[in-house]
Each structure stands twice: as C-alpha cells, then as structure tokens.
C-alpha cells in the first residue's frame, strides 16, 4: 500500500504535468510545474493557502485552462490533441473524452439540489455514460450503501447533513468509474464531528487500491495514514515530496519546516 515513490516511476504515470504554468491576472499560481501521479498512487498535496495546490486539481479537472505546458492523463494529452504528430489545442469533444477518466469531490459538495441523493448519483451515468436507468440505479444504490447512506436514497440534499452530502458527492463521482479521483479540501467545510465519517470513506477507498487519488487537505494525520506520497507545495512549485514519514518527521527544506511548525502550534 505505501509503495515507495521510486517504484512508481518505473510504471507510466497516470497523470503527468509537463511545465504547466497558470497565471491569474498578475499572479503566477503554477510555475512550469512538473508533477506525476502513478496509476494507483495516493498523493496528498499540502501547503499554505494561495500556494496553488487547489489550482493543480482544477486544471486537471478542466475547470481552469493552463497558460502553458501539457498535462497527460493515462497517455492522452488533456488540453491538447494530437494532430499530424503535433499537439494542438483540444476541442470540446477531445476534452470530454479525456475528462471522463477524472472525478472530483469539492469542498462545498455542489450536489444538485433539485435531485434526490439517488438521482444525484445516477444522473451522470445515465446521461453521460448512456447507462440504462435500471443499471445506473443499481450501481448508485451499491455506492450509496458503500458510503453508509443506504437509508437516504430518496432524500434531498437540503435534508442531509454536511457529512452526508459529501458522502453522496463521493458516491456521485465514483459512479463514473474514474481512474483518478481528486479531493479538494473535502472536509474543510464540515463541522468537526462530521469530518470523521467522510475520512473513513476516503480511507476505505484508498485501501481498496484500484484508483489513483490526489488529495488536497489540511488533515495532516489523515494524510499521513492514507498517502503513498506527500507533496509540500508553495508559491506554485513543489518544494519537497516523499513518503509521509519523511515529509512529516524529517522535512528537509526550511519552508516545509516553517509551515509544519506553524500548523503544529495550533
């Protein structure tokens, strides 16, 4: 489970950032970033706010367009397509094809308020994967059971607690069978007593092993438990990365040390 980071580079990474730059106005959020995630690797990104860690996820989920660089997902370029041996800007059709391999869970859940929990989970499989309704519902029920919401199929998001909403959001993303799951500070908006139930679900997912997972979180204890690799990210660049024990117990860079000591002071 906690495979050595070096072993993964022998296999083709499922995510590869090649000199990716993202600029917002005057602010360079990602600076020629090179970054990789292995096919079943669990990677956690930590760092100060404004460091750009959420932007990595957003660019990968096609919510933001990079200014420069290439992102590879499972061998295909994401924002580009291959035409006559060259890379050109991808059209919507190509984007949609590659995007289907990535799933994301958001800090503020973003469940569809006008649909029940069950329908939230079946909607995309039915309309995007063209799954028959019966199959989609069966799978949705399986997933909702798995995240512990077997009695909430017909509930609307407004009737659910934050933790329950987030678990529905996880089921919704899983229903699309992504190869990579992105988790963007998924417990930061939850009341403290609800955080655990969501982390438990994510921990189970990590232990099952089949998907690559990329998490941005402040839950350091959890990150340590679940990750194969922890990345400390600051000012648009990878400062340090390695197995959790190395990063948490024995940080090399000054910036990393400063960050962790500030955190621990709380």
């Amino acid at each position: 489970m906690h495979a050595d980071h070096n072993q993964n580079s022998a296999v083709d990474p499922i995510i590869r950032f090649e000199k990716v730059t993202k600029i917002f106005g005057d602010l360079t959020v990602l600076r020629e970033l090179d970054f990789e995630v292995g096919p079943q690797e669990k990677v956690t990104i930590v760092g100060p706010s404004g460091s750009g860690k959420t932007t990595i996820l957003r660019v990968l989920m096609t919510l933001e367009k990079p200014n420069n660089g290439v992102i590879w997902v499972d061998g295909d370029p994401l924002w580009h397509e291959k035409k006559d041996g060259k890379l050109v800007e991808a059209k919507e059709k190509h984007l949609r094809k590659v995007r289907g391999k990535i799933g994301m869970v958001f800090q503020h859940f973003y469940l569809f308020p006008h649909m029940t929990a069950l329908r939230n989970v079946t909607e995309a499989p039915i309309h995007v994967l063209k799954m028959p309704k019966g199959d989609a519902e069966e799978r949705a029920k399986e997933l909702l059971n798995k995240v512990g919401l077997s009695d909430k199929f017909e509930h609307y998001p407004s009737q659910l607690s934050g933790g329950q909403k987030q678990r529905v959001a996880i089921a919704r993303a899983l229903a699309m069978r992504p190869k990579v799951m992105l988790f963007d500070e998924v417990t930061s908006a939850l009341d403290p007593e609800l955080v655990g139930e969501v982390l438990n679900v994510i921990r189970e997912l990590a232990e099952e092993g089949d998907m690559a997972m990329l998490l941005v979180t402040h839950e350091m204890g959890f990150a340590r438990e679940v990750s194969d690799r922890v990345v400390f990210f600051d000012k648009g660049q990878v400062v340090e990365q390695g197995p959790p024990a190395d990063i948490f117990d024995n940080p090399q860079s000054e910036r990393t040390k400063t960050f962790f000591s500030a955190i621990l002071r709380h």
Binding site: M61, T62, L63, E92, R96, R99, G100, I102, G103, M104, F106, H108, F109, Y110, L111, F112, E123, A124, H127, V128, A169, R172, A173, M176
Partner: peptide
C-alpha cells in the same frame, strides 16, 4: 451557484445536458 457548473463539468455532462 457557481459550483453547480463546476460539478457538472466534473461529471462530464454535455453542454446541452
């Protein structure tokens, strides 16, 4: 809510949908 657009993108819905 802006987030609805993002969730819809993340789930890969077609623009019409």
């Amino acid at each position: 809510d802006r987030g609805q657009w993002e969730a819809a993108t993340a789930l890969n819905f077609s623009p019409l949908r």
